[in-house]
């Protein structure tokens, strides 16, 4: 029997669980407008996974990349959750570089 998939999925479950944490905390302190940077980081992780010689490293990079891309699409909804009072709201967020350009783009939400 091959237990590679079972071990990888348990690690991925932890990565997804951490996704809940960083989306909530990240949106609170930085705001949802950082989404293009998070998405780019996710894509870079996946591209990096293609060139990893070790299968465990490749799988971990891929799972982190997939989770980061999903998290980027969750930031806008999380911002609304904070504004509705479902999570603590922080009115003094740290804007990302090129914020004026990013504001013109439609933030993804799936």
């Amino acid at each position: 029997m091959n237990f590679f998939g079972i071990w990888i999925c348990l690690v991925t479950l932890f990565v997804i669980g951490m996704g809940f944490v960083w989306v909530i905390r990240g949106e609170r302190f930085f705001g949802y407008l950082w989404w293009p940077y998070v998405m780019t980081l996710g894509i870079l992780c996946i591209v990096g996974s293609l060139f990893a010689a070790n299968n465990w490293v490749s799988a971990l990079c891929g799972a982190v990349g997939g989770s980061l891309i999903w998290g980027a699409t969750e930031l806008k909804e999380q911002a609304v959750r904070g504004e509705l009072g479902w999570y603590p709201f922080n009115g003094r967020k740290i804007d990302p570089p090129l914020v004026k350009i990013i504001k013109k783009w439609k933030a993804p939400s799936l």
Partner: peptide
């Protein structure tokens, strides 16, 4: 250099698993 497809497979499974699960 050989391409390692394990990471891309894990990434697609993670993203699509969460997305389709979330909507469903």
């Amino acid at each position: 250099m050989d391409i390692n497809w394990v990471g891309l497979s894990a990434a697609l499974a993670t993203f699509l698993g969460i997305w389709i699960g979330h909507v469903s």
